[in-house]
Write a protein that binds this DNA or RNA. Structure first.
Length: 878
RNA sequence: GAUCUGUUAGCUCAGUUGGUUUAGAGCGCUUGCUUGACAGGCAAGAGGUCAACAGUUCAAAUCUGUUACAGAUCACCA
């Protein structure tokens, strides 16, 4: 059989992915097997694949494929998120390019454009995931705004409203002046910003005395309705009961005194703008101050801004300072660094704004969500994220769930005026709302059309928090077969930055609607960074294109590269070169296949003892490593599991096993060894398959004839069995002897082809297991192994443990170099003995430590002494 | 500012309830190999007073405390 010397992933990967799709191997239906369920963290519907997705989805695929091979009914549900703010912004931009202003079109028209946009640009990312090999059940692909999910959200809203957990109220919220919507506390990112601290003079009414107030936002003085100082601040006692003039504005406002003020900061005097700062708002409520809103929704000043009306808030800041400066109302300006809230989505500076919004009460539901994590019903990997989680839940505030957007689930609240009073009806549909109106206010409206629906939509996270339930239609049909079978899901794989947005809220929804956790384990991935440790981002241009990477290194190569360096919760410093290791590994396996398939098989040949032993040893090694790998998976240590698999295949299988059984050039191999080798190879491919699905499927098919439609994907994952540690230990000694001989060749410049002789000193009463001798001869290219009682002259030596080995040299031996080497070894051994003796001569140790430990130390001492004696004798011999 | 988590070889990380040769892996590095599967390879090497200091213990990378540095989360300081 002719097989190319290099593995070519491209053709292979497309071929097998189509095959898997065609055979519907990813599809899952409830049956009597145990389910294993994962729901994808839905990416933005119009997003494109980036390295974070690659990492996240590779991990999910590894877990899902493994579960499937372990005999579970694996179901990985894909889908996308409508991402209201981001998508709406994209649609608005698209319209703008076409010369259409959102304000000029109706809501229905806008939605039509938005759906078109979604159909055209949506779901690219899901296509890209197929390149990666993601074994999602594509038949189940969902969208947070499709009918089932939309209706689920609406029902939940109505239900929570009826339970009194959702309310509408006027509150100070975080306003995004670019997206023109309120956002939740979690969507505000505080960034350090270098600004100025302005010291402004507020003259006491009718006098030439003034008080200096420090502010970072002079443009808000138009909204000032008081100045506040600390009641015990001696500097300002004279101001008690006085009134001051807001500089440049002329408004006269009272001095109030409250302990809220920090006397150390600035001048110890604070201007109060109740409409534009949460703290000022609170003080305003406390002292019954008027609240003057000076901003339009887009961050420009409104008519209350006087001459600055219409200006942008930052332009106004400059202009107003210029004017105040000219009027002599500025005492000084200092550089100042503070944290300014930015919108997570648009990066606009957030404006605190008083407005009517919908909120969800969090305190009770938060407690339940905390409990299930605290008592480990849900386990976090790594566990440290429990702290973050706890802290957030213990300090949680009500969730602002309304958004002033169109793209999203429209809030099912309907308004009508009854006897001059505004009434609110919350119902799943307009018809239901009408029914309720007819019941409560007979004759108030004649038809459902007359009801006015709330203009706002719900926060995107108000739909994704239901994801593990709504995917199986568990909100609308809570007793359906699917939700009962697949829920709760098993593992959630996500990035830690959405622990509050998503993870915590899904746990809440699970408690509220299933009385059960939504998943058992949460695996937090790290952040993919570039070599310099920077976060990958579009604007920095430091993010490689995943599709190009996969074309260059193969999906398997990229998968392996990412997994190897990414233990749970650790950031991944990504460098393209780590994919090379994955690509090289695929190639290595490929060449092992070439070797094995290149052998001529003879059915007449009996299996040699060496081959039989080699097969047995390899089987023991696999059993031993399998045990480690199973432990790794139990603890979600995926990179360790992969590394263990990698070493098993590369070192144990390729470097040792295949060399042990490799027939001499031109000679055939016996059928039994060949058969065992193929079986071992197959099992190794099964073990590797979850990590590298494509190359393993390809090789699995090339190893043996397979029935039509067969796939490695549904083979049984090998499981650990009892193994013979003694055999592994014996072989390890043989391997050391082989390495010793190879080392000698290396240092003496001897060709591997030159046959040598090996003498092993088998001292008094020492029994050495000789079963690996044949293998030693073969791999070390040793003509003959002799066991002797005495040292051998005219030979160089090395030690394996306490055993001395000699290799006679025909050419002259460099005595000085030999002596140096032995003396170094001796020095080390003596140093070692000294450290052992230090312990053993300590009476407290001998008496205090457990017997077992003391016995080990005694053994160490005996071994070291023996070694020292042997080395001394060798040196003397030279 | 508060809380949490780290600090082990050039890089990325293991190191299980303190005790199995004075610490391990992968990559990288060095030195040999135009070896009949593979140079995307083979073989052999070098490389660490486990951040610092103090303490507990017969015994500390491992437990305690202090310090330094890094990261994460949170916070109303105008």
């Amino acid at each position: 059989m002719e097989i190319a010397s290099k593995y070519n992933p491209r053709a292979v990967e497309d071929k097998w992915y189509s095959f898997w799709l065609e055979k519907k191997i990813f599809h899952s239906e409830p049956d009597n097997r145990r389910p294993y369920t994962v729901v994808i963290p839905p990416p933005n519907v119009t997003g494109v694949l980036h390295m974070g997705h690659m990492l996240n989805n590779t991990i999910q695929d590894v877990l899902v494929r493994r579960a499937r091979m372990m005999g579970k009914n694996a179901c990985w549900v894909p889908g996308t998120d409508h991402a209201s703010i981001a998508t709406e912004a994209k649609v608005v931009n698209m319209l703008k390019e076409r010369g259409i202003d959102k304000r000029d079109i109706t809501r229905d028209e806008f939605m039509k454009y938005a759906w078109e946009w979604k159909e055209e640009h949506g779901g690219i990312i899901l296509k890209q995931l197929r390149k990666l090999g993601a074994s999602c059940d594509w038949d189940r692909t969902a969208f947070t705004m499709d009918d089932i999910r939309y209706e689920s959200v609406i029902r939940v809203f109505v239900d929570l409203y009826n339970k009194g957990l959702i309310y509408k109220g006027v509150r100070m919220v975080n306003w995004d002046p670019k997206a023109l919507t309120a956002v939740s506390d979690e969507e505000v990112i505080y960034k350090e910003s270098h600004g100025k601290l302005f010291y402004l003079k507020y003259f006491v009414e009718g006098t030439d005395k003034y008080i200096v107030v420090a502010t970072t936002r002079p443009e808000t003085i138009m909204g000032d309705t008081a100045v506040c100082v600390h009641p015990e601040d001696e500097r300002y006692q004279w101001l008690k009961g006085k009134r001051v003039v807001v500089p440049g504005v002329g408004r006269v406002v009272p001095i109030i005194m409250d302990e809220y003020v920090d006397r150390e900061f600035g001048t110890g005097a604070l201007k109060i703008t109740p409409a534009h700062d949460i703290n000022d708002y609170n003080l305003g409520m406390k002292y019954n101050l008027p609240s003057i809103d000076i901003f339009n929704d887009n961050g420009t000043l409104n008519e209350n801004g006087g001459k600055y009306a219409g200006q942008d808030r930052f332009a106004c800041r400059k202009n107003i300072m210029k004017d105040l400066e000219e009027a002599g109302l500025v005492e000084k300006v200092e550089d100042y660094v503070n944290k300014v809230g930015h919108s997570e989505r648009t990066d606009a500076v957030i404006e605190p704004k008083l407005s009517a919004q919908w909120f969800m009460k969090m305190s009770e539901i938060a407690k339940k969500a905390l409990d299930v994590v605290e008592n480990n019903d849900i386990q976090f990997h790594p566990e440290k994220f429990k702290n973050t989680y706890r802290h957030w839940l213990e300090n949680i505030k009500d969730w602002c769930i309304s958004r002033q957007l169109w793209w999203g689930q429209r809030i099912p609240a309907y308004y009508l005026d009854v006897d001059g009073k505004r009434e609110t009806i919350v119902a799943a549909t307009r018809e239901e709302a009408f029914d309720e109106v007819s019941r409560r206010f007979p004759g108030a409206v004649q038809s459902s059309d007359q009801l006015e629906q709330d203009e706002d939509v719900l926060d995107t996270w108000f739909s994704s928090w239901l994801w593990p339930i709504s995917l199986f239609d568990g909100i609308r049909n809570p007793d359906n077969k699917e939700i009962k079978y697949y829920y709760p899901t098993d593992d959630l794989i996500t990035a830690p930055d959405i622990i509050f947005f998503w993870v915590a809220r899904m746990i809440m929804a699970g408690e509220e609607y299933r009385q059960e956790v939504p998943f058992r384990h949460v695996y937090f991935t790290g952040i993919v960074r570039d070599k310099l440790g920077r976060k990958m981002s579009k604007s920095l241009g430091n993010s490689p294109d995943p599709i190009e990477l996969m074309e260059k290194y193969g999906a398997d190569g990229v998968r392996m590269g990412m997994l190897l360096t990414a233990p749970a919760g650790n950031d991944l410093p990504f460098d393209e070169s780590i994919c090379e290791q994955g690509r090289n590994f695929a190639n290595k396996i490929w060449n092992a296949l070439r070797l094995v398939k290149g052998w001529e098989v003879s059915s007449d040949l009996n299996q040699s003892q060496e081959n039989e032993l080699s097969v047995q040893w390899m089987e023991q090694r696999m059993a031993c490593v399998l045990e480690d790998i199973e432990k790794d998976f139990e603890q979600y240590r995926l990179s360790e599991a992969l590394m263990n698999t990698y070493k098993l295949i590369w070192d144990d299988f390729c470097s040792w096993y295949l060399e042990m059984i490799k027939p001499a050039y031109g000679s055939p191999i016996d059928a039994e060894t060949m058969n065992s080798t193929l079986t071992i190879f197959e099992r190794l491919m099964c073990m590797l398959h979850p990590f590298m699905p494509f190359v393993t499927e390809e090789i699995w098919h090339l190893l043996r004839e397979r029935p039509e439609g067969a796939s490695i994907m549904v083979q049984h994952m090998p499981v650990s069995v009892f193994f013979d540690q003694r055999m592994l230990d014996d072989c390890a000694i043989a391997q050391e002897i082989i390495a010793g001989v190879r080392g000698l060749r290396n240092s003496k410049g001897l060709s591997p082809k030159e046959q040598l002789e090996l003498f092993i000193v088998c001292g008094e009463g020492k029994s050495l297991n000789k079963r690996f001798d044949g293998i030693i001869s073969k791999l070390a290219n040793v003509r003959q192994i002799s066991y002797v009682n005495e040292k051998v002259g005219g030979a160089v030596s090395f030690m394996v443990g306490t055993t001395e080995c000699f290799v006679p040299m025909t050419q002259n031996i460099d005595t000085e170099a030999e002596r140096k080497k032995l003396e170094d070894e001796l020095k080390y051994a003596e140093g070692f003995l000294a450290s052992v003796m230090k312990k053993l001569s300590n009476e407290k140790f001998v008496n205090g430590a457990p017997e077992k430990v003391v016995a080990v130390e005694r053994q160490k001492k005996a071994d070291a002494e023996q070694k020292i004696a042997a080395l001394k004798a060798q040196i003397a011999n030279l």
